[in-house]
């Protein structure tokens, strides 16, 4: 009873029959794979984006003595635009209709 997974639960009468259907098994594994893939990809994006930003900021601070503030701002904005485009493409990647 202490283990939530081995406890008796209220389930619809035909639960097990439905759960064993090939169709159900398939959507369950697709769902698990989807989430695994999503979170790997999402964390990968967040981490690598931070690393890129860090590098750009380091580079810009090194250039601080050589370039004018306007130039530096321009380069920073240019970098952000590129990142913005990457982010937008992530939203648009055609994954919505891949799964039912």
């Amino acid at each position: 009873v202490n283990d939530i997974r081995s406890s008796p639960k209220k389930l619809p009468r035909d639960f097990h029959a439905k759960a064993e259907l090939h169709k159900t098994q398939r959507v369950v594994s697709v769902c698990q794979m989807y989430f695994l893939d999503y979170y790997c990809d999402m964390f990968d994006y967040v981490i690598s984006r931070r690393q890129r930003t860090k590098k750009v900021l380091e580079y810009l601070s090194q250039q601080g003595d050589l370039k004018s503030p306007d130039q530096l701002n321009g380069e920073w904005t240019g970098y952000l635009e590129k990142e913005h485009e990457i982010l937008r493409k992530r939203r648009l990647k055609p994954k919505n209709k891949d799964f039912e």
Partner: peptide, 13 residues
Amino acid sequence: NQINMLYGTITEF
């Protein structure tokens, strides 16, 4: 997308 996937698994139920 996440909710679509989650709900998709229980459509039978």
